[in-house]
Write a protein that binds this DNA or RNA. Structure first.
Lengths: 234, 234
DNA sequence: AAGTGGTCTAGACCACCGC
DNA sequence: CGGTGGTCTAGACCACTTC
């Protein structure tokens, strides 16, 4: 809690939880200045954090108000499967299907800006939530990012990448519906020909270096994707 | 272009397009102050807009840099079907299947915080892109928001809502994979039993009033959903 | 050590809302 | 009209990266 605006934001979060209902007005920015003994910019920075979190909204000329309940934090974050499952209240586990060092498949080479002769580390895993198969995950990492032999499947992949100086910061995802192949149906323990949600992800560092290509196939009956969007014409 | 920070942002956007490559450094904030004759806060506001757009990124202690190409504008916006198709480069059209005034179905009543006896306006449309069926859309609006009789299907629904004082600002969406029913398969002109992408949306005004419940079923072979996500532990 | 972005102050005026 | 959030100035110091 080093910065003042974080303290102010925390204090506002508390008073919302303690005594305010959705659409109640917050104290005005000038009042908050006096209450916390800070400048207006610090108050506004604190409020902007809460706006980003979806906890409050501004109405020009009128005030700042508490947002509707449960609109919070639906903004999708870049998470590992493990983090995602925990946040959904399930216990994640995993079964490794395959680890290999291969030449980059075309789709991977294109996405990661490699040549097809470049080597990548391939990891295929069956992912489970509360001991039920829920997803098939296939990850490709350039060997220049992480060598196949130095991979430790017992530990968090993103943590290993971070320690190797390739902290994942941002990703682009494509979500689509597919029909499962027979073998994938068997692995996920659903009827052959079932629909599934396919998420393809290309991850990069803060500086924009391409780190990871991943494709995850989720059981349609056990996984949905939620997000909040705004109009924001500007 | 009323505000100074917008002018500064526009100027930076131009110089990126004209002469900068991904990962090139921008002029420093203090240089930008001098160049544009504005204060540091205005420069930082301009840069923060560009960061939100994904065009540049900051590195504390080092500089502000041009982001990787084509990472732009993948942040999903709340759009109408028409806007969405145009931004994807297709020509949208539409065939109305049904318009009715009905009692709110359970799922709709729950989502919009109505009682099952409240009336809603129901609109079912087949949506086409370049004359090919691409989605089935079902929209429910409380009659207190828009009366069935005053609906004009020739005009933009969101525009009508805005004029009625119910400007849509925010929505929560749930995306999942489903298997099409026989009748929906026929309407979308795909094989019976095909997979499809189902998007359920609950829209609200800036002030948090619930306005619309919509469910759109997209052909899996013609529609994918793309979005950028960040890690942002903070 | 020099330069960068990150935080913060103490003011000011403008644009908008509600009475 | 008074009060609100939105923009803006001209400074200051801190935290971090780079050399």
């Amino acid at each position: 809690m080093a910065h003042k605006y974080e303290q102010v934001a925390a204090s506002i979060r508390e008073s919302i939880a303690r005594s305010l209902a959705p659409h109640d007005a917050l104290a005005s920015e000038r009042e908050l200045m006096a209450i916390h003994g800070v400048s207006r910019m610090t108050v506004r920075k604190a409020i902007s954090v809460l706006v980003d979190e979806g906890r409050v909204y501004n109405v020009h000329g009128s005030g700042t108000y508490v947002g509707s309940a449960d609109i919070f934090s639906k903004t999708p974050k870049l998470t590992s499967f493990t983090e995602d499952m925990i946040s959904r209240g399930s216990v994640p586990s995993s079964r490794v299907l395959e680890v290999a060092r291969i030449a980059a498949p075309d789709a991977v080479a294109t996405a990661l800006n490699l040549t097809p002769s470049d080597a990548v580390t391939q990891i295929r895993r069956l992912r489970l939530a509360d001991d039920t198969p829920i997803a098939l995950e296939e990850v490709f990492l350039p060997t220049t990012v992480l060598e196949t032999e130095s991979l430790n499947l017992g530990a968090s992949l993103y943590e290993q990448l971070r320690l190797a100086g390739h902290e994942v910061y941002r990703a682009e995802q494509e979500i689509k519906a597919i029909t499962l192949t027979r073998e994938d149906s068997l692995l996920l323990e659903v009827a052959v020909g079932s629909a599934a949600l396919s998420v393809t992800r290309v991850s990069s560092s803060r500086r924009g270096h391409l780190i990871e290509f991943a494709r995850t196939t989720y059981r349609a009956d056990r996984y949905t994707f939620q997000l909040a969007v705004t109009r924001d014409d500007k």
